[in-house]
């Protein structure tokens, strides 16, 4: 039982990551691919934050009467990663807008057919 209490968080996070990953590699629509990518990344962020948690600790901001803080380093890393993620999303979405204008579709198999036709 304690084994499950110790690990349930990791396992659910793994499940979420794989859901996102599945959307990325299986979706045919490019917008959905980007949504999947974001879900994948957000779930990875959860993995990092999970490992920074200390049971009974508080947020790492100095407060009187508190001795146990959660680990601030994963928080810093994930702050960085979130911003990196939104940067990638923005570039990906603007590529989609251009693809729509150039091909008239954002379904992967359709513009692949068009490319092959040339």
């Amino acid at each position: 039982m304690s084994f499950i209490i110790d690990y349930y968080n990791y396992w659910i996070v793994v499940f979420l990551m794989m859901t996102g990953f599945y959307i990325v590699i299986s979706a045919n629509n490019l917008v959905k691919k980007i949504v999947g990518l974001n879900i994948f990344q957000t779930s990875v962020f959860m993995l990092y934050i999970t490992m920074g948690k200390v049971s009974g600790g508080t947020a790492p901001i100095v407060a009187e009467g508190v001795t146990l803080y959660s680990n601030p380093l994963p928080h810093v890393l994930i702050l960085t990663a979130i911003v990196v993620g939104v940067a990638t999303t923005a570039v990906g979405l603007s590529l989609i807008v251009r693809i729509k204008r150039a091909y008239g579709t954002v379904e992967e198999n359709e513009f692949q057919n068009e490319d092959d036709a040339i």
Partner: peptide
């Protein structure tokens, strides 16, 4: 225009790769 689809594919693969490294 094919550079757009190439760049998009690169973006998706590259981001998956980077996320794997992050994991």
């Amino acid at each position: 225009r094919r550079c757009l689809t190439a760049a998009f594919r690169y973006l998706v693969m590259g981001t998956i790769g980077a996320t794997f490294i992050l994991i």
